[in-house]
Write a protein that binds this DNA or RNA. Structure first.
Lengths: 156, 156
DNA sequence: TAATAATCATTCAACCTTGAACTATCTGGC
DNA sequence: GCCAGATAGTTCAAGGTTGAATGATTATTA
């Protein structure tokens, strides 16, 4: 996709349209989902995503660094987010025996229950704000584009 | 796109793929663009976007409330962001004579110069992180999807 | 036209993120 | 085995965001 030669410096009309729409839509989606989770469960979307990632793991736990990479959060940001979720009883910490520098964030039963209780509201919001606005035939293209981006930016 | 009947409650595989890729890609893009602007001009992307929106206006100024809507920022967030940009000399304030409750945020010459100096770096980053990863034939679809979303979420 | 409601912008306190500094542990080369 | 350097995670201070409260002005309506 990216040629070796220099790309044109500015964006053409089609590119600018994509970029502007992207910027605005992402902000609107973020605001909407945050409002929804705040009302339904007094959670930020980042909190919710922590619970989701933990719940999708067989042991319902993840190493802090692993989790921070998945969420694209800095380590200190995750440390403090997990602190707050732990204070609420949704997450607990376990020392990692194999690597004693390491810590697991573990989803508690209470955290799992909160996630299950909140999920239907959140999924409805996700549908309304994004998924139901992508046509059946468009999903693959959109997912392709985003996965290309992830592949490109992942390493850093 | 949204039917009157109830949507299926959970996401199917294609929908989930879109959603997960979206979440991760957006965070990676945001991180990348912020890093780029921070190094190039010690600006956050929100600062940059303030300058862009002001510069695109004939008078190079916008009412605070107008600007906060375009950026999808709360009013208090914008107030404080403009405070900081004003402290740096990139933006100034003018009282609005027609509606004396109102205030204009005005792009200064210095702010415009900073924008011009930074734009090439930022555009390169935008290309690398998003635009060049969307195929020529994909731009219209992606833009369509995001504009649909904007239309849906705009009013709130 | 006075009263009520709505809008524009700012302020303040509580909360959250950032990034650098720090502790503890592990890894690889000698 | 030992040391330099990498890695995991936390802490702290500085700065940014949120949301409710406030002050000032404009719109509505009885």
């Amino acid at each position: 996709m990216t040629s070796a030669a220099a790309e044109p410096p500015w964006l053409n009309d089609a590119e600018m349209r994509t970029w502007r729409a992207y910027l605005r839509a992402v902000n609107l989606i973020d605001r909407r989902l945050n409002e929804g989770l705040k009302t339904a469960a007094d959670l930020a979307i980042e909190d919710y995503e922590v619970l989701v990632h933990l719940s999708e793991t067989p042991e319902r736990r993840l190493r802090m660094s692993d989790l921070s990479q998945r969420l694209v959060h800095s380590q200190s940001r995750l440390t403090q987010r997990v602190d707050r979720l732990a204070k609420r009883g949704y997450v607990s910490r376990e020392k990692c025996p194999e690597d004693r520098r390491g810590t697991f964030a573990c989803l508690t039963d209470e955290g799992f229950a909160a996630l299950q209780a909140t999920a239907p509201h959140h999924v409805r919001d996700v549908r309304e704000a994004l998924i139901d606005l992508v046509g059946t035939d468009e999903h693959e293209i959109v997912a392709d584009v985003f996965e290309r981006i992830i592949e490109r930016l992942r390493q850093d």
